[in-house]
Nucleic acid binder design. Sequence first.
DNA 1: CCCGGAACCTGAAGGC
DNA 2: TGCCTTCAGGTTCCGG
Length: 269
Amino acid sequence: MPELPEVETVKNELTPFVVGRQVTDVVLFWDKILRKPGLKEFRNRLIGQHIEGLERRGKYLFFRLGSGEYLVLHLKMSGSLLLNNPDGRFVRAVLQFDGMKVYFRDPRKFGRIWLVAEMDELAKALGPEPLEDGFTAEVLAVRLRGRQAPIKAVFLDQKVVAGIGNMYADEILFAARIHPLRPAASLRREEIERIHAAIKQVLGAAIGNKGASVREYFRPGGELGTAHFEFKVAHQGGKVCPGCGSRVERITVRNRGTYYCPRCQPLEP
DNA sequence: CCCGGAACCTGAAGGC
DNA sequence: TGCCTTCAGGTTCCGG
C-alpha cells in the first residue's frame, strides 16, 4: 500500500533513470487510468517533452516537464512503477522514454494519471508535508482543532496531514501511545506533541527502510521495501505487542482495518 | 464544513 | 478440487 514513504522511495529510485530523458510514447491499456485531459490532448502535450525532475506531494508523484507542466501519477493502493516487468501482468500503462520504459503495474486498477499545468491543481487541497520543518506540533494542533471524529479517521483525511495512510496511521498512534478511537479534539497538548514526534520518527524510519511491502508494493527495480519488518502493530493482529506482551487487537475504524495494543494505547488514561 | 458509509477494483484467502 | 463469499484500501462521492 503506497503511502508517503513508499512514494518517496519510488521518487528517489526513479529519479536517476528518468531525469533528462525524453518521452517518446505513452501506451494505456486501461482507459480509465487517465483522469485529465483526454487521451489525444494528453499525448500531444506529453510526447516529446523532457523530464526535468521528480517531486512528491502527499502520495502524488509529479514529473516536471520541460514545458513547466506536470505528469502526475497516483499509485493508490496497489500501484508500482517498474523499470522491468518480464511477465507483463497487471500493466495498465507504459511510459516510453528514449532508451528505457517505465511500467505502471496496478492489479486493482485504482491508480490514476493526470497532466496538469500547475501542481496546485492536485496538491492545493492537501495538508502540510509532515517531514518538512514547517510541520510543527502547533501546526498539527491547529489541524486537529474542532475534529470530533476518531484520530485514526482524521489521519486518513489528506487535508489534515498529507501522505499518511492506513498502516502508518496505526504505527504512529502506537508510537505515541494513543488509542485510535480517541476523538481528535479531545487530545491534550502533550499528546499532540507525542503524535507529532511519532509522525516524524515513523515516516522517517520507513523511508530509511525504502517503504513497506505489505501487499502490492515494489520498488522500481522490483525489490521489496523492509519497513514492514519493523511494524509493531500494523497488520500484526493477534501477535504479541513488543511494548507490553499483550495481544495486538484489530478493530474497524471508518471501514479500515485498525491495529493497536489495548494496554499500551488505553482509551481512558 | 464535518462525518460516515458506499463505490471503485480484482487477487487472495477462507469456508464448505 | 472447486465454487462462493469476504477482505483489502486511497480517494471521491453522496446523504445526513
